[in-house]
Structures are given as structure tokens and as C-alpha cells.
């Protein structure tokens, strides 16, 4: 606008320097300036200190105090400068409604409907085919985007490496003799050859001295009377809630507890959940002992281990 506007001779008269809007907020600007100046010097020294702290040693504490202190002081100084020494107004600014004029809006609508309608209404076939093509493109692009990421689950969610006669070993691969654990003892075990596997982790507990299982002690679920041996029972260590290792065994109350979300399983009666979000008992591994007295599994698990999923029957 300035090019077309008539120019005035000379500058406009200056705004009054003593206008109260242009005065600093501080009543004593010199004092405020002194405070800001001191803060900025402290900030400067802080950064120098950080340099020294970095050079001298390896202390995150000194680095934090020097760098953080420097930043704090410098930031305080700048803020104080702005807050106390710069014009505080109040100033105002008009808001302009940012919607366009009615004519502009109508023209926009018309541009879309008239011109677009002209094209689309006359060439419905092309419009439909374009929509079809782009939809197909969207769908097939999902294949590389999603399908390439990894394998299908297949049977992996149902299977473990526990089979008939798998030998129980510790995480170090040591076999477990029936005399190894004391009553009230607990041990994380794996099938031989698969130590450390998430899906195969099993918690082995010795509940009694003799067995299969001490009848008055254990309320065996039907069909599981011979699943323990010499007072040992074994359950999948994967929580049926979210798959955390159920590593917390309370010996007196004979409960397994999941440390993640505090589901509580009763070890004496097939690890049924007594409290918490876990919906199902921990699957039990049937045990036996071989002629050397080492613990082995009678078979694999009779169900999928771990949390629930759609395909689980």
C-alpha cells in the first residue's frame, strides 16, 4: 500500500518517550538491572564451571550443577530483563475474523461444485474407475507394509519345546535330581537344549518330601494325581494375564504371584488364579523321574501357555 499512498514530507512525530506504556515495570530499574547483571555473570561462571567439570572429572552431579546452574542464572537474568526493564504496555492488537468474505466463500463452493460437478457428473465411469483403482492400490500396499514385517503365528503360540521325556535343566543346563531341592524350594527350569526360552520357562516347586504328591496337602485337579513326582510340581512360568514370568513364590501360603500385575495362583490346586486379573490357571507340566533320579516331563503341556489370544480354543 505504501507505494501508491501519498507520502508525507518527513517522519511522523515520535511517540512520547514518557508514555507510561513504554516505562519498565520495575520501580527501580537500576536495581533490576543490577540483579539481572549479577544473574548473567553467575550464568557465565556456571558455563565456565561446566567446562572445568567436564575437563576434570566424570561427575554427573558437578556437570548438572554447573550447566543447570548456569542455564538457570542466565535464564533468570534474561527473564528479569524482559519482565522488569522492557516496556510492559499493556498493548493491544485487534483480532481480525479470519473467515473470508461471503463472496469468497460462495466462489469457493461454486468452484468445487460447478467445475467439479461438470467433470464428475459427465464422466461418472471414469470417476468410479479411479476410485476403484486407488482403493485397490491402498489395499495391496498394505501387504508389503504389514505382511512383510514378520511370519504368521502358525502354531507357535500353541507349541512349546516340552515333549514326552524332556529333561528338566536349570538355566545353566544342569539336570535336576529329585534330591536337589528342599521342601519349599523353587527353581526356574527349561527343557534340555532350550535354556532361556521365553515360551518354555517353567517354575519347579517342591511341596513335599515324598510323592507323587502328598494327598492331604494338594487338591489335585481331576486327572492330575500323578503329575507330580517326589513332591515336585511344575507350572509354566508365563503368566496367563500378560506373559510376565511368575517368579514370586510365597512358601507359607503356597501361592505364586505375578510381580507385574499381582495375579495370585494357588500352587496346591493346579495353580488356579485366586485374585487379580489372570483368567486361567498356569498350565501344569506333568513330571516324572528317570532311573538316575533326574526329573523329566511326562509329556508337553496340554494347552497353550501364556496370555489369551483369539485362536485359543
Amino acid at each position: 500500500m505504501s507505494d501508491d499512498a501519498p507520502r508525507l514530507e518527513g517522519p511522523l512525530p515520535p511517540a512520547a518517550l514518557d508514555d507510561p506504556h513504554l516505562q519498565p515495570y520495575a520501580k527501580h530499574p537500576e536495581r533490576a538491572q543490577a540483579v539481572a547483571a549479577v544473574a548473567m555473570v553467575v550464568g557465565f561462571l556456571g558455563f565456565i564451571g561446566f567446562g572445568v567439570a567436564y575437563w576434570v572429572g566424570d561427575s554427573a552431579q558437578w556437570e548438572a550443577v554447573t550447566l543447570g546452574g548456569g542455564l538457570l542464572a542466565l535464564g533468570f537474568g534474561v527473564t528479569a530483563w524482559g519482565k522488569y526493564l522492557m516496556p510492559q504496555g499493556p498493548f493491544e492488537e485487534e483480532r481480525h475474523e479470519f473467515h473470508s468474505t461471503e463472496a469468497e466463500r460462495e466462489a469457493m463452493t461454486a468452484a468445487v461444485t460447478e467445475r467439479g460437478g461438470m467433470v464428475l457428473r459427465r464422466r461418472k465411469l471414469l470417476g468410479g474407475l479411479f476410485a476403484l483403482g486407488s482403493t485397490a492400490m491402498g489395499i495391496v500396499l498394505l501387504f508389503p507394509l504389514l505382511r512383510s514385517l514378520g511370519p504368521k503365528p502358525g502354531n507357535t503360540l500353541f507349541e512349546t519345546n516340552w515333549t514326552k521325556n524332556s529333561q528338566l535343566v536349570t538355566v545353566d543346563g544342569r539336570p535336576i535330581h529329585v534330591d536337589d531341592l528342599a521342601v519349599g524350594g523353587v527353581l526356574t527350569v527349561f527343557p534340555r537344549g532350550y535354556t532361556g526360552s521365553s515360551q518354555d520357562q517353567v517354575i519347579l516347586i517342591r511341596l513335599a518330601q515324598l510323592g507323587p504328591l502328598d494327598p492331604p496337602l494338594v487338591i489335585n485337579p481331576p486327572g492330575r494325581t500323578d503329575w507330580g513326582v517326589q513332591g515336585y510340581v511344575a507350572y509354566s512360568k508365563m503368566c496367563t494375564h500378560l506373559g510376565c514370568p511368575v517368579g514370586l513364590y510365597q512358601e507359607q501360603t503356597q501361592q505364586l504371584v505375578c510381580p507385574c500385575h499381582q495375579s495370585i495362583f494357588n500352587v496346591l490346586s493346579g495353580a488356579i488364579p485366586e485374585f487379580g486379573p489372570a483368567p486361567r490357571p498356569l498350565p501344569q507340566l506333568p513330571l516324572t523321574a528317570d532311573s538316575a533320579g533326574n526329573l523329566r516331563s511326562q509329556s508337553g503341556f496340554n494347552q497353550a501357555v501364556g496370555p489369551g489370544f483369539w485362536e485359543r480354543p
Partner: peptide, 11 residues
Amino acid sequence: PGNMPHFSVGN
């Protein structure tokens, strides 16, 4: 002791 499991020498 208490609720803590027993860890024997074999364990």
C-alpha cells in the same frame, strides 16, 4: 524364613 522359599545346596 517366613514366606521365603528354601534354597538347598542342590538348588
